[in-house]
Amino acid sequence: MMEKNYAKPGEYKVIDLLAVAAAREVNDGEVVFAGTGLPMLAIMLAQKTTAPNSYLIYEAGTIDGKSLHLPASVGDARCVYQAAVASGLYDVFGQLQRGRIDLGYLGGAEIDMYGNVNTTVIGDYTKPQIRFPGSGGNPDINSMARRTVFIMVQEKRRFREKVDYITSPGWRVRKWPGGQMVSRQEAFGKTFRGGPSAVISNMAVFRFDEETGLMYLDTVHPGYTVNDVLNNVDFKLDVSRVKGETEPPTHEELHILYHEVDPEGIFLP
């Protein structure tokens, strides 16, 4: 195998690294649910590099499209080109609930130490300080896909011990109707399939301990230190398992991102 031709810091932007790191989470042959933005860059890059036999599903209802031009949203007409099926939400959410989706890419405004994500409100739900767009399919994908990957902005106010509202379930969640906090496995019982497997921020990659469900630091992006990450997390983060630096983008990956995936600059600068 050819030696990888890595780009050096300064030769790529943070968003490039995010897309590349997210693309590396896809295994070849998987069925992937992707939302608007970075997830699209990630899966399309993966399909052109390490996961050519993966299938892409958009929440609005297209399955395995081969977009000629990058869609600007999952409802975009561009999603449909050369798709296996163009249907609707009932089809794709049904497949999700049926257990056919291996990986989902998601985002959020806030995340807590167990991977619970908030995309609904800041403050008390009944009298919020900010009303965000809301859940969309985030909790559906995150509760029914086998694995999810979150892409987040690294800030203290976004990596919190507790989020204001659990829009999307992590590894320690509310069990209804009582509402007590229990492990995801306990809350989901026989239909537990998996959960958040990675959080990729502009500074680092995080993963979750299988026993405790707690987030730990896995790799730190080139140009950042463990301390930078700690200064931008509002809970006690386990940094004892850091493997080292996040693998930087290669020149080939950057070329594909800028010339094949997003030449118009829809999401990339």
Binding site: Q97, Y125, P139, S143, I166, T167, V173, R174
Partner: peptide, 12 residues
Amino acid sequence: WASRGTDILNPE
């Protein structure tokens, strides 16, 4: 099964 474990289902 959708969206178990969340505050969407919080009666509050």
